[in-house]
């Protein structure tokens, strides 16, 4: 088995008196897709935020390959999130005033690339995801599925090690959701990145390599491990 790409060991996190994570171990290997399911308020998003270095766990550690993530400074974690991780949310992560190509180019420009240099791969990714000719459109001028594919292009343009997705198809109809999910799984596999998907949707979970479930802050391997595609 390949060594895991992202690992969480003994993660604890509480908000006030509410326990969100009560000792969670988690890992995902390169090229592997893992679905995280569970009822509302079970701690799914907290796990994702801990793994991505957005919040620090109260106890436990997070590693990207061999590097500790949770002990880095806020600045270093921001840099990590920008350069090694990618995020896909339900909706709303695109800047409404930027056209599609600039939305995709933004993370590269934040990383220091010049604008022409950043726009080139951005347009390439848009083309790959079937959005050729729509580079100039603003998010408001795109359909929900198109906007989500722009968000996907933005996530992938930095060639991330890990992609975190939080209900990526939650705002889409079934057919469009299927399509976005298919593109997501396929491109993540091509990049040999790890994919962590938080979802309610059993059909989305079923398309991942593996499913884990969080209940009351504890992690269980899902009895029915998803069969890929």
């Amino acid at each position: 088995m390949t060594p895991p790409m992202i690992t969480g060991l003994g993660l604890h996190k509480r908000f006030g008196s509410a326990v969100a994570l009560g000792g969670v171990d988690f890992s995902a290997a390169p090229g592997e897709s893992v679905a995280v399911t569970g009822p509302s308020g079970s701690g799914k998003s907290t796990l994702l935020h801990c793994l991505a270095g957005i919040i620090k766990p109260d106890a436990g550690e997070v590693r990207l390959f061999d590097e500790r993530v949770d002990s880095l400074s806020e600045r270093q974690r921001s840099h990590l999130r920008r350069s090694r991780f990618a995020f896909l949310f339900q909706f709303g992560q695109l800047l409404p005033e930027l056209p599609a190509d600039e939305n995709v180019a933004l993370p590269l420009m934040l990383g220091g690339d010049s604008r022409p240099k950043a726009l080139e791969p951005a347009r390439e990714w848009l083309g790959r995801l079937g959005l050729a000719g729509k580079e100039d459109r603003r998010p408001g001028e795109l359909s929900g599925g198109e906007a989500q594919r722009v968000a996907l292009a933005r996530a992938l343009v930095i060639r991330p090690a890990v992609v975190f997705a939080d209900e990526p198809t939650g705002a889409l109809d079934r057919a469009t959701g299927d399509q976005v999910m298919g593109v997501l799984l396929q491109t993540v596999a091509e990049l040999n990145a790890a994919l962590v998907v938080v979802t309610h949707d059993p059909l989305v979970a079923a398309r991942c390599d593996r499913t884990v479930e969080i209940r009351d802050g504890r992690l269980f391997d899902h009895p029915m491990a998803g069969a890929r595609r």
């Binding site: 935020h49 920008r82 995020f87 934040l110």
Partner: peptide, 16 residues
């Protein structure tokens, strides 16, 4: 506020 929050999640430095 929503956009700003998501930008922060994806690692956009506040200084920018």
């Amino acid at each position: 506020r929503k956009t700003y929050r998501l930008l922060h999640l994806s690692g956009t430095p506040r200084e920018v």
